[in-house]
């Protein structure tokens, strides 16, 4: 499920445009989600957010423990960042020029 950090949101509206479910809307220069239960988890909003104001979290019924998944997109690589509840930060870089081995 998607979590929005209202303090970080810059109100650019990129997530409003990109979400395949039309789930975001802007209210007073801050983005809101209509119904978080409708999110597919595709992370299009996580990747496009320029302020890292949106993260994906695994719900409790999916085995989630509260960790947060952020992403930073650039032409060369997609950098994923997992922030665990114990403060541990794990970085996973996916080189866009390299295909999956599987």
């Amino acid at each position: 499920m998607i979590k929005i950090d209202e303090n970080k949101c810059v109100g650019c509206g990129r997530c409003v445009d990109i979400c395949p479910g039309n789930l975001f809307f802007l209210e007073k220069s801050c983005v809101k989600m209509r119904d978080v239960r409708d999110c597919w988890g595709c992370c299009a909003c996580v990747k496009i957010c320029p302020a890292k104001a949106i993260c994906y979290q695994l719900a409790a019924d999916l085995g989630g423990t509260g960790a947060k998944l952020f992403a930073e997109d650039s032409p060369q690589k997609l950098t994923w960042q997992i922030l665990k509840t114990n403060g541990e930060k794990i970085i996973l870089e996916v080189d866009k020029a390299r295909a999956n081995k599987f």
Binding site: L58, L69, W80, V94
Partner: peptide, 18 residues
Amino acid sequence: LNAYLNMAPAQTLRWIET
């Protein structure tokens, strides 16, 4: 882990956080 990030990021997150 990388392959799943490219299509279903929740699975990679699950592996790592659990």
